[in-house]
Design a protein around this nucleic acid. Structure first.
Lengths: 211, 211
DNA sequence: ACCTGAACACCGTTCAAGT
DNA sequence: ACCTGAACACCGTTCAAGT
């Protein structure tokens, strides 16, 4: 079974799924394919090409998933549904958000996704100008993920000096209340899905009002 | 002049400012300090430690900048002002957003920043629960940046196949109209600052309504 | 206490050479 | 056309050794 760009990219996605982005090296990738590292260079230009490629693969999966849902009549429901469907794909590829963010992606699959999203908004009565602002406002949420950079566990994890906690009354107050109210949530104390939907709805509602 | 953790971190920030994150290697960093790479390990544990350290340095600059503005009486104005001030620091360190996003940061300076932000919202009448949702909704915008992952230039840059453009009617329509309406904007066609404020205001207004 | 040289295990990538 | 071995220039990091 010969190598091919497609096989290389699929193996790269599998490798990242199983061992994370850091494990995705040319040498390891080749090993996974039963070949030598140098053989990959016949099918891909360089490692950057592989990274661009797997972004495209994931975006392709998103378009595939999103293609199966028929859009709701109302723009907000349609966009919301579409984004939450896209989100499912990112939950399967937890390394993808980080990669999407560092790519100045011209991924054609991503463009296709955005095009459909713009279409839904236009059909909902948005001007092009407002759609444009909307995409910026949504940011990565338009694609279905939001990079969490605040880990609430950090607030009371062991490696925060005790004397510092005294200087963080608001944060500790907030975190202790949340820990109390919501003892069994998914990730740490925060229900990722619920928080994603909350943020998404705040923005969609705001956009609807501006429409 | 002997090395020190502080000197190492300051040199690391300078190096990233001038040549980007990719240029920040232990060897290059040592060279910049007129020392050998191995000497750094006496003052920092490993490279990850350096990265955590410069996040803390940048967050420290933010707290410094933000400390000079006296908060507006109204919560929304106060938070908005604070965030836009923080944003100035990120404009000086363009490599910082990418780093902040990949760190599961327990940076004490970041915690300090969040604590003050939570305080402003609490004073504005937010419940802890709503503050918590608000931080998730704001995401990186709370700190003053939003990672743009959609480069609108991509839509008509040369490397998008011509036949694909036909399949992207909504996107091309949007982009051509924007290019027409706003010929001289800052970055590509998008005014980063204006888009940041637009997205921020959508969220802050939405939160105010939920308050 | 602070710095360094030599060395190790790993990278991405080239290039000429194999089939 | 497709794959590879040897080699290069780079990483982060260790460890024993220097002052």
């Amino acid at each position: 079974m010969p190598l091919s760009r497609e096989r290389v990219l699929r193996a790269a996605v599998d490798l990242a799924d199983q061992h994370g982005l850091r494990a995705l090296t040319m040498r390891r990738l080749a090993e996974e394919l039963g070949a030598e590292a140098m053989s990959l260079y016949y099918h891909v230009a360089k490692k950057e090409d592989v990274l661009d490629g797997i972004v495209d693969v994931v975006a392709g999966e998103i378009n595939e998933a999103v293609g199966h849902v028929e859009p709701a009549p109302e723009w907000k429901a349609a966009v919301r549904e579409r984004i939450l469907t896209a989100r499912q794909v990112f939950l399967r590829h937890r390394w993808a958000p980080e990669l999407f963010e560092t790519r100045s992606s011209t991924s054609t699959e991503v463009l296709r996704y955005y095009d459909a999203l713009v279409g839904l908004m236009r059909a909902g009565g948005f001007t092009y100008d407002l759609v444009h602002h909307a995409l910026h406002a949504l940011g990565s949420r338009a694609l279905g993920f939001s990079q969490e950079l605040f880990d609430p566990n950090a607030g009371q994890s062991a490696d925060v000096p005790v004397d510092l906690v005294w200087q963080l009354p608001n944060l500790t107050g907030m975190l202790s209340e949340i820990a109390h109210d919501d003892p069994d949530s998914t990730l740490g104390w925060c229900d990722d899905q619920a928080e994603f939907e909350f943020g998404l709805d705040v923005i969609l509602d705001g956009l609807d009002r501006l429409r």
